[in-house]
Write a protein that binds this DNA or RNA. Structure first.
Lengths: 218, 218
DNA sequence: CTTTCGTAGATCCTATAGGATGTACCCATG
DNA sequence: CATGGGTACATCCTATAGGATCTACGAAAG
């Protein structure tokens, strides 16, 4: 018999969750200074667990630290960095799709197909876009999980944090309907066709890349 | 004119460097408990910067944290985790070699060739092995750097931390001479031949994999 | 008007102390 | 002898305070 893992947590972990979502959900914008004492007051804790949370976030690239001068939210990606990120996505996520096609469990395959079938209903642009990105991120994580490689999934998750940051800042860069692309990926995985899965993911990412590039017209 | 970046650091950063090398150089073995107060006494600092350093190390997978029960050095990789790591190495480092072949600067190419030409001189087994792994790690980092992708290099560096941990624990798993393999990689990059670089790296990693597998005869 | 210097304030970094939790040992009991 | 419970100790977690550093604003000199 297996019992559910019990989840004890410290203040440091809670502060980390709060700050991480605050950065990802854009409550604090890139470049903003993070005043440790102020954060501690707002969260009604002492500075110590705040420092601990910031140290973790720095190691993940969400914030930057300048010794003796404080933390700031990581700046937005430059055009070069953004292109580099998509090169990495192509490398990692296409491999994930390929591996998922051969190693995914039946449950994972059907979950992927179900997620790809879902569509986002109306509402104003802002909430619609938020729901859409959440769905997209969920689907990509399903593929990463189905790859059967914990390390690969972790690497992809790391990349997506930065992608999410960028998306929130340019909310209308990606408005085209990508359901078809998602369904092709899911179908390829369902059919256990590695080459097709790789190619479908490549197509999807390349299109996403092009849609995002408009944000860099400088 | 460009001035050298000035390197101010806090105690937390220094503690991090110290603890990281202590784990990597195997001063503290996998599974060992890390007593925060004791570490603070040994390093002659207060527990606060120690906690900060451990938080960073946990995010990198070097230590594990159990809330309200302390930190421990991450356990050695299981056979599955080890295989997963080499799958990732094949994916990442072959791509790095491929990109390096097309995008490396002339300086990077010659540095790579020079590193591949170096050999490790005698001494007792232990120091020889240490020098050898250092040379191998340096060469792989040169390839990662020459890829021109900061994200790719960072991912590879992350993997190598765990690899290094494993190597130190089974110091005699890799004794074959790999200079030939290194030189083939360097030559392919020098000749700007992506396919050859990919293949040479694949061969090198596959052989390394087989050499390491003997550690798992259980 | 521009630049330099100096001071005041805010902020970061570190150390110390106390409350909360986990761990280990010993004793009692079946 | 094995098992369960209770207590003492060690350790972790958090809060608070003080010293060191950085930043920003204003005044003085060129």
């Amino acid at each position: 018999m297996t019992l559910p893992r019990l989840k004890r947590s410290t203040l440091g972990d809670d502060v980390y969750d709060s700050l991480r979502s605050a950065v990802l959900e854009h409550v604090m914008k890139p470049g903003d200074r993070l005043n440790i004492d102020a954060l501690a007051r707002d969260l009604e804790v002492s500075p110590t667990p705040v420092r601990e949370a910031l140290a973790r976030m720095e190691s993940e690239g969400l914030v930057r630290k300048r010794p003796l001068a404080g933390y700031t939210v990581s700046p937005l990606l430059t055009r070069d960095e953004f292109n580099d990120m998509f090169d990495m996505r192509l490398l990692l996520e296409c491999a994930a799709a390929r591996w998922a096609a051969t190693r995914a469990t039946p449950e994972q395959r059907s979950a992927l197909t179900a997620a790809a079938a879902r569509t986002v209903e109306g509402g104003d642009d802002r909430t619609w876009h938020a729901a859409f990105t959440a769905l997209d991120a969920h689907l990509h994580d399903l593929v990463a999980e189905a790859s059967g490689s914990p390390l690969l999934r972790e690497s992809i998750t790391r990349l997506h944090a930065h992608l999410h940051l960028h998306r929130r800042y340019f909310p209308y860069a990606q408005t085209a309907v990508t359901n078809d692309e998602h369904q092709q990926i899911a179908a390829a995985v369902e059919n256990a066709d590695p080459d097709a899965a790789d190619e479908a993911m490549r197509l999807h990412l390349t299109h996403a890349w092009e849609r995002h590039l408009v944000a860099f017209q400088d």
